[in-house]
Structures are given as structure tokens and as C-alpha cells.
Design a protein around this nucleic acid. Structure first.
Length: 596
RNA sequence: GCCGACGUAGCUCAGUGGUAGAGCAACGGUUUCGUAAACCGUGGGUCGUGAGUUCAACUCUCACCGUCGGCUCCA
């Protein structure tokens, strides 16, 4: 029985929304045709009672959505796939013909196809309509196909999943059958191989194997426990970030996790974001709330005393832990959680300072991301939406500041017209990981709303009170999500500056235990994270264990090393070389400093 | 939340109505060994939780909890 591999290339939806419609290239045409063949096969096998919805090509393949009673079961897939392969082999021509709206509606009314009628109703009058036929299957379709079923080449059905009609949970739940297709079998095989590789990098699997973190059923879903190995990495990341921010003029602050509900009424979060907040906590007849965002807290710090233009810019940074109610079905390992710690900061500045602060922030983001071996970025600027708050001219200035900051960083950007939040324009930075997947990490968001809601002011040089401009920004995003991305990026083989254990000292026999401890102490004195392996195992076993633990360096010490006062350094890749402990320390210290 | 699948030892997984299994890990012992897994032994499971059906439930039914895939990529 075939195994149905999940589609592992999970992409942030926002990215797709912003990707210019995939050039109607050959692959998309081929997959679009494959979707029609899927529907053809389903109708062949299950009859005309199946209600047809839509069947587009998508990023990694295609799907077709159906409504069928009883529902499809996984065992149906091989049958359907086999029928598709027959159809492919029959070299059926794909042909399209224009059709009038009336004829199309009659066609689908006669066949009792409500979703097709719904689609028709959604197409504006005057748009030309067409029907495409391949073999015995005709479908309302805009076109964009290969000429023959044969051109579809290699096809594989991947999974069945529920999906609301038009993605709206008020609509009926349909079943989508997902598949992928390529011109050649070899390309399909390669794709499936890539999926397997992605699966091996899954942070949930590696997190367990390397004992980095866990999510405990008893404690609740979406709440992350960082184990010592994960904690070591996190603290290295946090130290790094803190140093970066200190150098850039940020001030560390700390704010409570629970504050009076009133704060979120003032901020407006309760009104607009309330559904994503944890419920109230009653204390002495007052209602408190877990914070879903750090901004109100930082604002209260700003507001705690009168501010002068001389105090600005004020850059308040916090690893702020927030709690958000995410629907249970959306939780996913470290990538989508209910409790998360943002590398958050809020910048309060004068309008004149906005440009410079934005540049500084973008520069900080790129510097940090590069330190984690991300070097392929895509920037998205989201501009004023129709429901925007505030003066359009102010928006334009802010948008110009964002664009200038991108230019200043020397990076191209794409513009999402009208994609900004109602309270301000923003920049999002996406990174591409080691196997080509994109993740949104940084976000730098101007806010024209909260300063007003909290009545923030500063005394200007003119002696008048002015409203500061506020910028929210998280550069790594959240520690949880960033860690998940990092795990997958490095496949658990963290660079030495991040690795929870940087070097394992491995004595070959008991006779070298004392020497191994000596080496361990020497390395610890140099601030390295070290494990001395005193287990009663053979060398091969010890090496296998540390290799599985993805420890960057193993320092093997046996009789000859003991005699010569050296260590035999085995790198993660397998190469080995004897050297003095001091030389090793010098090499690794340099490597750590360079973050390579 | 919704649709579907899944939940057996710390991990990976066998076990289709008749007294719960393996490998790895753990623990005890033997071995002291030169670059990816030595040998012997021991312990460990309310089979996610709770109800129900049955003489009998890991196995069948229902509910709940959790996990996984999907739920804006548009005829």
C-alpha cells in the first residue's frame, strides 16, 4: 500500500498572495490538466453524483475539490490514480469551446452541480465563458492546458483533506484531493525525494531526537517547553540579539504578563483582537488579561513620565512573552503556538526621525538574519488600505521612509498595494532556507493609531506637545517560530556558535577518563559548551551517538593523545586531525566569533 | 473551530474479540575497546481518557482529549 506523504512545503499564505500570479508556464498548465483528469477519473469511478467544485494548479501540484457522500477514503486514491494513468496513456486531446452563460447554467442545472452554478454566478457578466473537454469529461474552465492527457506525464495523488467551499467556514465542507504532476517520472521521483528530505528536517522530529523542546499534552496544546538543549540555543540567540540591540541604542525593558483588562480596552486590542485573546482572570473583582502583545506595556512605560524631544528616539526592547488563542486546528509544532516570546521592540520617535529609525531597523534585521546563515531575502512593503486611519500625507511619508530604508539596504522590494493594516504601513522580510522554502520572519510596522489612543505626547523644541510616531518591530519574529525555522534550516546540525554541545570529549577507555576531564575543564574555561563522555561503550558507539546528536566536534583521546598531550579532533563531517587542546580552543573560538 | 486520519513502553513500531510484543533507550553485570551502534541479564504499558456492547474489548460503538494533513493559491 502506498504511503501518502504530506505536502511538506508549507508556505506562508501571505507569500502566495503576494507572489505575482505564477506565469502560466508549462508546469502549471500540465497540472491544471491533471486536475481535470482527476475529476474525470473520479466521475468515472464514482459516477455523476459527485459534486464538482474547482480544480486549479497550485504551487506544488494541483487539487480538485469535490463533495461526495460517503466521503472519499484514503484507499480510494490508488484507484483514482490508476484511472488517471489510464487516461494519460490514452492520449486524450484537451479542447476548449466558448459557451454562453445560459447554456452553461442549463448544463450545470441539468446535472445538479451547485458549486459550478455558484462559480458561474460569481463571474461578472460579459466575461467570456468556456468549457474544456478532455476525453469524456467536460468542465467549465478558463483554460490554460496542455494539449493532450499524455503531456501530463507523471502523476501522483498525495492526500485528501477537508476544505470549505471558497475557504469560508460558513460554506459546506468539501473534500480536496491533492496531487502533483510532472512531465517526466524522474522529476516526480525527485520531487518526492525532496519531500522526504524535508520530512527529515521536520523540527518536531528533530526537536525530539535532539531533546530540544516538547509540547506537553497535560499542559495544553501550543505551549512550548524548552529543554536544556533548546534552552542553551535560545540563550545564545538571546545574548546575541541583546548585544545587537544594545549597540543600536535600544533599552531593555520588562513588562508584566498579566495586566488589567482596561489596558487592552484603551489599546483597542480587546475590541479588535479579543477573539485571539485568552479569557479574563478575575482577581479581587477586577478583570485581568494575559497580554497578547507587548505594545501596550511599552506604551505605559513611555507614558510614565513627560517626554521631551530630547528623549527621542526611545527604543524599548523586550523578549516579550505573549499568549494568543489560536484555533486548535491551526497549531503546528513551534511554528504556530499559543504562547510565544517575541523579540519585540517599540520605537518612539519624532516624524523627522522615522526615516533614520526605519533604516536602522531594517539594517538590524538583515544583520541578524545573516548571522543565522540566511542570505536570500524578499521584502514586502504594505501600503495604505482603504479603511486606513489618519492623514494620507502622513501615510505617504511613512511609506516613502520604508521604501527608502529598503533602498538604503540595497535590496529590492515588492509592494502590496493597500495591504497595510488600518493603523500603518509596514515592511515584512521573508527569508529562504537551506532547501528553498520561504519563511516570514521580520516585520517592521508603523503605527498611527496607538499613540493617539494612549494620548502619547512629547514636548517639542517649539514648546508645544506633539504626538510621537511609533514603530513596532520583531526581527526574528518569535523565539519559538524562529527556533523551528532554524532547526529546519540547519536540519539540527547547528553551527558551532549555536550548538548546545559544541564539543564532546571522548575517551577511548577508562584509562583516559581523567585526561578527558582535564580537557573538558580546559574547554569550559574557554567558555565552550562541552560534554565528557564517560559512558562504558566502545569508541564506535560513542562516535555514533554524538554524531546522531549532531555535535560539531568530537575530541577523541586515547593512549597516544594522552602520551602526546593532544586531542584527536573529529569534525561533524568525519574528518579528523590531532592537535594540541589550545589549538582547538583557538580554532573554535575564532569560528564562534565568526558565527560560521 | 470544521473535515478526514491517527493515538500500544521514553523513542520507532508489531499485534483484527480470548491473559500485551520487538528493536533502540533505561537499569545491573561482563568487556576497556582507536573513529557511525560489543555481549549477558533486569525492570518498564490503567493499550490517550471516560462511557457502552459482549461471557470476554488494545481490538467493536459513542463522547471527550491530543497529534497529523487541509480549510484565500479560485471557473
Amino acid at each position: 500500500m502506498a504511503t501518502y506523504v504530506m505536502l511538506a512545503f508549507k508556505v506562508d499564505r501571505r507569500e502566495c498572495a503576494k507572489t505575482p500570479a505564477m506565469a502560466v508556464d508549462d508546469l502549471a498548465q500540465l497540472r491544471h490538466t491533471a486536475a481535470h483528469l482527476l475529476a474525470h477519473a473520479v466521475v468515472d469511478i464514482f459516477g455523476d453524483d459527485v459534486k464538482l467544485a474547482i480544480g486549479p494548479a497550485i504551487e506544488n501540484g494541483f487539487y480538485y475539490a469535490f463533495l461526495k457522500t460517503p466521503a472519499f477514503v484514503p484507499e480510494d486514491l490508488p484507484r483514482i490514480e490508476a484511472r488517471m494513468k489510464e487516461l494519460i496513456g490514452e492520449d486524450l486531446a484537451m479542447s476548449g469551446e466558448p459557451i454562453s452563460r445560459d447554456a452553461a447554467e442549463k448544463h450545470y442545472r441539468d446535472r445538479d452541480q451547485p458549486f459550478k452554478l455558484d462559480i458561474l454566478a460569481g463571474i461578472p457578466d460579459g466575461e467570456p465563458l468556456s468549457m474544456y473537454t478532455i476525453g469524456a469529461f467536460t468542465d467549465l474552465c478558463r483554460g490554460g492546458h496542455v494539449n493532450s492527457s499524455k503531456d501530463v506525464g507523471a502523476v501522483k495523488l498525495m492526500s485528501i483533506a477537508g476544505a470549505y467551499w471558497r475557504g469560508d467556514e460558513h460554506n459546506p465542507m468539501l473534500q480536496r484531493i491533492y496531487g502533483t504532476a510532472f512531465p517526466e517520472q524522474a522529476q516526480l521521483d525527485e520531487y518526492l525525494h525532496r519531500l522526504e528530505e524535508a520530512e527529515k528536517r521536520d523540527h518536531r522530529k528533530i526537536g525530539r531526537e535532539l531533546d530540544l523542546f516538547s509540547i506537553e499534552e497535560q499542559a495544553g496544546p501550543g505551549l512550548v517547553f524548552w529543554h536544556p538543549n533548546g534552552g542553551r540555543i535560545r540563550s545564545v540567540i538571546e545574548d546575541f540579539v541583546r548585544k545587537q540591540l544594545r549597540d543600536r541604542g535600544y533599552e531593555p525593558v520588562y513588562s508584566p504578563h498579566v495586566v488589567h483588562e482596561d489596558v487592552f480596552l484603551t489599546s483597542g486590542h480587546l475590541q479588535s483582537f479579543g477573539e485571539s485573546m485568552f479569557g479574563p482572570i478575575d482577581v479581587e473583582e477586577q478583570r485581568y488579561r494575559l497580554k497578547p502583545m507587548n505594545c501596550p506595556g511599552h506604551i505605559l512605560i513611555y507614558k510614565s513620565k513627560p517626554r521631551s524631544y530630547r528623549d527621542l528616539p526611545l527604543l524599548l526592547a523586550e523578549f516579550g512573552t505573549v499568549y494568543r488563542y489560536e484555533r486548535s486546528g491551526t497549531l503546528h509544532g513551534l511554528l504556530r503556538v499559543r504562547g510565544l516570546t517575541q523579540d519585540d521592540a517599540h520605537l518612539f520617535c519624532t516624524p523627522d526621525q522615522l526615516q533614520g529609525e526605519y533604516e536602522n531597523t531594517v539594517d538590524a534585521a538583515l544583520t541578524m538574519l545573516r548571522a543565522f546563515a540566511f542570505d536570500d531575502f524578499r521584502l514586502f512593503v504594505s501600503t495604505r488600505p482603504t479603511n486606513a486611519l489618519g492623514d494620507p500625507q502622513v501615510w505617504e511619508r511613512a511609506e516613502a521612509a520604508i521604501r527608502n530604508a529598503c533602498d538604503h539596504a540595497g535590496l529590492a522590494y515588492e509592494i502590496d498595494e493597500g495591504g497595510g493594516a488600518f493603523y500603518g504601513p509596514k515592511l515584512d522580510i521573508m527569508v529562504r532556507d537551506a532547501i528553498g522554502r520561504e519563511w516570514q520572519l521580520s516585520t517592521v510596522q508603523v503605527d498611527f493609531n496607538l499613540p493617539g489612543r494612549f494620548d502619547l505626547t512629547y514636548r517639542g523644541a517649539d514648546g508645544e506637545d506633539h504626538q510621537p510616531v511609533m514603530i513596532h518591530r520583531a526581527l526574528l519574529g518569535s523565539m519559538e517560530r524562529f527556533f523551528g525555522v532554524l532547526i529546519e534550516h540547519f536540519a539540527g546540525a547547528f553551527p558551532v556558535w549555536l550548538a548546545p554541545v559544541q564539543a564532546a570529549v571522548v575517551p577511548i577507555g577508562e584509562a583516559q577518563f581523567d585526561y578527558a576531564e582535564e580537557i573538558g575543564a580546559r574547554l569550559r574555561a574557554a567558555d565552550l559548551r562541552v560534554a565528557v563522555d564517560r559512558s562504558n561503550e566502545r569508541l564506535q558507539k560513542k562516535i555514533a551517538m554524538h554524531q546522531a546528536g549532531k555535535v560539531p566536534y568530537m575530541l577523541v583521546v586515547g593512549k597516544s593523545e594522552l602520551a602526546s598531550g593532544e586531542v584527536n579532533v573529529r569534525e561533524r563531517g568525519g574528518s579528523q586531525r590531532a592537535m594540541k587542546p589550545d589549538e582547538f580552543v583557538a580554532n573554535v573560538t575564532a569560528e564562534i566569533a565568526a558565527r560560521t
